[in-house]
């Protein structure tokens, strides 16, 4: 079996569906999920933006340690962390080698480590936060932070519709397969098989678009009857959602500790540098 054929045999929408279900609907009981979603979001923004203003590696390592801990204690899958690590490392190597080739020295590596750390802090923190936060809570928090209502609705709608949409695509895809005819000759590296599959992937969107259009019409009619357009203007739903959220001591403690930690890291960085 050639490489392409092996891929094709692994091309399973069923698998995709399961991954989705596990990440999207799995248990969200982690430390971060206990915080108020708005506080968490704001904390997150500072935590991922701030590394870009530090060039001191001590501080960056300290921040990295926090985001790694958070990622490990949240329910991020090991595979995702592993892939993230590998791809970051490989990028580092490639750029470094290319820089050497273009007449640079080993300094390039060192310079890049700073960048890599920043990217990793951001990546890990994002994964930790967004796998902990329930999409429904995220959408409420974004609404509270004045993101337009269609976006916050969109998140929870995606959350609701995705199993249906994937199943529909799967059925259409299977329709093409059951009625189609794979190429008789495989070609070099089985490229013809690869081409056949890619073509179905693309063509299957034609019926999918039309079917989804029909579906969406019913959905938007339902939205109309259930007052969604009314609330877009009146903002009632937002007010009610806001009144349900509350900032508790744990949120304050968490933010306070974060600030102290960063301050300590900056101080330590100075001490070490001196």
């Amino acid at each position: 079996m050639s490489l392409i054929e092996r891929w094709m045999s692994r091309f399973s929408l069923e698998q995709l569906k399961m991954t989705l279900w596990r990440t999207a609907y799995g248990n969200k009981d982690t430390f971060l999920s206990r915080l108020d979603p708005r506080v968490l979001l704001i904390w997150y923004v500072f935590f991922t933006v701030s590394p870009w203003f530090f060039y001191d590696r001590t501080v960056l390592v300290a921040l990295f340690a926090v985001s790694l801990t958070l990622a490990l204690t949240s329910r991020v899958s090991g595979l995702i962390l592993f892939l993230m690590g590998v791809s970051t490392f490989m990028n580092l190597v490639y750029i470094g080698v290319l820089a050497l080739f273009l007449g640079g020295s080993g300094d390039a590596f060192l310079a890049l480590i700073t960048l890599t750390l920043k990217l990793l802090i951001m990546g890990l923190a994002s994964v930790a936060v967004f796998t902990s936060i329930d999409p429904e809570k995220l959408s409420d928090a974004l609404l509270a932070l004045r993101l337009p209502a269609p976006f916050s609705f969109g998140i929870s709608y995606g959350y609701r519709m995705i199993p249906i949409l994937v199943e529909q695509y799967q059925d259409v895809f299977a329709s093409y397969r059951m009625r189609g005819c794979p190429p008789a000759r495989k070609g070099i590296l089985s490229w013809r098989i690869g081409y056949y599959f890619c073509k179905i992937c693309v063509l299957a969107f034609y019926p999918t678009l039309l079917n989804t259009a029909k579906r969406v019409r019913t959905t938007v009619e339902a939205l109309e009857m259930r007052g969604f357009t009314y609330t877009l203007v009146s903002g009632d739903a937002r007010r009610l959602k806001l009144s349900r959220m509350s900032i508790r001591p744990i949120d304050g403690i968490f933010c306070g500790l974060s600030i102290l930690y960063v301050a300590a890291a900056v101080w330590a960085g100075h001490q070490l540098a001196l």
Binding site: P135, Y157, R160, R215, T218, T219, A222, R226
Partner: peptide, 12 residues
């Protein structure tokens, strides 16, 4: 409506 599956717009 008959097609009630699409009338359900929220996750839970």
């Amino acid at each position: 409506c008959q097609d009630f599956e699409n009338q359900l717009v929220r996750p839970t």
